[in-house]
Design a protein around this nucleic acid. Structure first.
Lengths: 340, 340
DNA sequence: ATACTATCCGAAAACGTTTTCGTGTTGAAA
DNA sequence: TTTCAACACGAAAACGTTTTCGGATAGTAT
């Protein structure tokens, strides 16, 4: 087992200075053909690789970006990581993944830890708890230190920085209007509590679509789910008591659960009831029946976020501090078997 | 925007030496109560945080581990990351995620890049291409440099290192026997090509179970899928021509696709045909009907792998080089609606 | 012989820490 | 008054690089 070899060791072996070794390896014209060959051969033999940490320290750049997400097991977030990773790799960056587990504290700890020079910038989506507390001091602090941050999906207006989002409001509006155009009047909404930013926006879009088409917004048709672990009973009650003609669910899990329960109640899909979900995940695609859904291209979001971050990193000081952009990724209603 | 403050700057402001500042912040008894307070107050005011890179260089430890996986959008791998992340965080480590995209080259590039001091150790699952080529030089090289590697799930006997696996063979054996005990004779297998190690092992388990119970292994009932993007037609042919009573699929996607096609052919599940999948993912759970499956606890695998790696890192040289362990994570047959 | 230029190489600083060792000051003991 | 210990702090090395600058040698032109 040969330990890692350094410039110093090579220099000593070959009886030249460290500078000479370094220059030889970088093909500097200062060095004679002779020594250059000698050094390079030796380096190759001992499999020399420059120490990235030393380089980072010298260059004040780590070539590493960090993505902080609430949960990795959500397919959407996994696709975002995938997009980030590809763009990052293409540009010579590595990706550090941190999970907040929807916890404010973990988010803070992660950021403070990494802000200590370990990485060049952040890409993040807020945890539920952070959105609820509306405490963003850890993020402003990082930004004030001159470290760029790009937020995606779950963002906040309280922070000035680059952002990548979809137009949640419009997407929900369009999905709702799709039902309205089919002639449905009793359109139910299964959504999250309001402090989850995207849930709120989607709820607003639904409400606006109903009002714009002179349909009354019936609170009995709107189910706001708090506990994401145990909500089957609530959905069942909604379906049985209200008998909606259509359901718009703000995520995949709600949608697929609604389908299961509809089946249990003996309802035919989409004959008796139509369903549209949100987030084009793997469940919607493979569900039986497959679920029509507002597709939210996670890969594209990740790619865009990474591009924005890297651009800011490479152009550094030259940019004026402000000039923050918010990119909106297009959504699309993917029609499958749960609607007609 | 205040840039990051360093020991040197604090020292200059307070007109003391760098050493004094460093010692004050670490509560060294060498420093008088007076200056200690002064320095600490100043440091707090300017929000001083030690530079992790400098520390890494000094300590020759980065407190970062890297996990290399073929694809992040596979739910199983996402759960593994989740497990790794938790254990790593508990022990003060960060997690770098690299995707090989099932490509040998990307795997090599990632490893060589990171081996240059950026991280302390690897956790990895081999890409398909690497398994096919059986070229592991990049891994041996890293190990020879003294950097610990823990392999999980897709492993190889050609490399000596710590490993975390499930008993794929036994799990497949048990699943097949489950069918046999129900009295089925025509049990089909939907699997991958043989160079994917886990696919091979599961195929072997199926074969052994059949033979042990005096059932003939009919090649017509075994479908080996190469192209994972386009296999619906093959499954349909299998179902229609062979009319199996039960199907064992080596992953979720194969299982759920079989279910869809069975439905299309008018077969009732599990009355006309029973199905068992592999990998306890989100699809199996939410599919209609939900799919019985061999559960492969990704979180547990990730946690175990991280623990093994960190243990090796902390105990370092003191350990003898060999003494590599292979941990087997238990699997379990989760019965759902696709069997009875 | 002198001056100048190329050519080749080494010393040292810098990045931000921690830590060892040395040193100056003070007070008390001899 | 001398000696010694305790105390408080600073200098410098070390981690592994890159890069600037200066210096030595040799060769060429005057």
């Amino acid at each position: 087992m040969k330990r890692k070899v350094t410039l110093k060791q090579i220099a000593k072996e070959l009886d030249v200075s460290i500078s000479t070794v370094s220059k030889s390896l970088r093909d500097s014209p200062e060095i004679s053909e002779d020594t250059r060959q000698k050094v390079q051969a030796f380096a190759k033999l001992y499999n020399y690789k420059p120490n990235n940490i030393a380089l980072s320290l010298k260059n004040k750049k780590t070539k590493t970006i960090c993505i902080i997400i609430p949960e990795i097991i959500h397919h959407f977030f996994a696709t975002v990581i995938s997009g980030v990773e590809h763009v990052a790799n293409e540009n010579g960056y590595n990706v550090l993944v941190c999970l907040s587990d929807e916890s404010f504290d973990k988010e803070v700890i992660n950021m403070e830890m990494l802000a200590g020079g370990s990485i060049d910038g952040f890409i993040m989506s807020l945890s539920k708890e952070t959105q609820q507390k509306r405490d963003f001091h850890h993020i402003t602090e990082v930004i004030n230190q001159g470290m760029p941050v790009v937020m995606f999906d779950r963002v906040t207006n309280d922070i000035l920085c680059d952002k990548v989002i979809i137009d949640d409001n419009l997407a929900a509006y369009n999905a709702t209007r799709f039902f309205i155009n089919k002639g449905y009047k009793k359109i139910a909404l299964i959504t999250t509590v309001d402090y989850v930013s995207v849930g709120k926006l989607r709820t607003d879009g639904y409400t606006k679509a109903m009002m714009d088409h002179d349909l009354k917004v019936d609170p009995n048709l709107i189910l706001k789910i708090e506990d994401t672990d145990n909500f089957d009973a609530q959905i069942e009650t909604l379906l049985r008591d209200q008998k909606p003609e259509a359901i718009f669910a703000v995520n995949e899990i709600f949608a697929v659960t609604a389908i299961k329960i509809a089946g249990k109640l003996g309802l035919q899909i989409p004959t008796d009831i139509s369903i549209i979900g949100f987030t084009d995940g793997i469940i919607s695609k493979y569900s039986t029946p497959s679920i029509s859904t507002v597709s939210q291209n996670g890969v594209k979001m990740g790619e865009k976020a990474a591009k924005m971050l890297i651009e800011r990193l490479e152009n550094e000081e030259m940019e004026i501090e402000e000039h923050y952009k918010t990119e909106v990724i297009e959504t699309e209603l993917v029609e499958r078997e749960s609607t007609h």
